[in-house]
Design a protein around this nucleic acid. Structure first.
Ligand SMILES: [Mn+2]
Ligand SMILES: [Mn+2]
Ligand SMILES: [Zn+2]
Ligand SMILES: [Zn+2]
Lengths: 133, 133
DNA sequence: GCATGAATTGCAAATCATTTGCATATTTTT
DNA sequence: AAAAATATGCAAATGATTTGCAATTCATGC
């Protein structure tokens, strides 16, 4: 793990929400170049240290968001799913993946091997609901 | 519904799998311009006639894939989820959305309103599994 | 049918997140 | 330390998608 990769991973771990490359860049300062951040994010994901999903929202366009993968504990997959508020654009952590049974069912029913899945939710968060608008 | 929009919707309905804009263009012929296809796809999605998700695969890069939404029947959400084979790049229809209970749980637990979700799976399909490689 | 304002389309050009080429710098191996 | 392998920085390219704008088509009332 080079300095750039460690710094990138640390930023993902500290963040309370998925970050796009631009957000990582904001936080990484002069440590390294933009391209290195992209390459570090790839590296982290390829090595199982980060997860990503691509989300399109009207305000921010299409961007890939990264999270650090939790260290694996009993019964936990290590990867979370997220809710994105269309109003305040914050992410809410919905906790560890709950799709194990569903995935197993699909694998059995279709004789496929599911290696990964992407799941996220969008809507209105509790705060924005109260504020009405 | 203009001619271009109808043609676009017909193509999505005929397809046995999610199509990216480029795939729709291939099939739509001289009927209309590329930009009109993009705009038609937006229109269809905004009006609840199509669904989309963004998928990144090494071979084809990042693209948005569209499907026609089923007409709603009892107990069916109208939108399906899909499995994408990393090897042959085909999509497999996993059927109607099974996340209702999960979504309701999240809404109750976090006082959020979930308006939509994105879910798809990737891995190796039955055919590619047999062929080994 | 025809006038009129609204919505849609085509074409060219712009956007913008992400990727790539390549020379330099850093790390690892022998 | 030299050689080989890997990572980085910078500039330029990529490519799906979007936008501006003028021309066309559509809708609606007369
Ligand atoms: Mn957003
Ligand atoms: Mn593919
Ligand atoms: Zn919110
Ligand atoms: Zn396959």
């Amino acid at each position: 793990m080079t300095k750039a990769r460690q710094a990138t991973l640390a930023i993902l771990r500290d963040a309370q929400e998925p970050l796009c490359a631009a957000a990582v860049l904001e936080r990484i300062g002069v440590c390294c170049d933009q391209v290195t951040v992209y390459r570090s994010l790839h590296f982290l994901e390829e090595n199982g240290l980060a997860d990503s999903f691509i989300l399109h929202c009207a305000e921010h366009g299409t961007e890939r968001y990264y999270t650090a993968v939790d260290s694996l504990k009993d019964g936990y997959s290590g990867h979370h799913h997220w809710f994105h508020c269309e109003m305040c654009h914050r992410f809410l952590d919905l906790g560890d993946c709950q799709l194990h049974t569903l995935v197993a069912g699909y694998e059995a029913a279709h004789q496929i091997t599911v290696k990964s899945h992407t799941l996220y939710f969008t809507g209105i968060c509790a705060d924005c609901q109260i504020q009405g608008h």
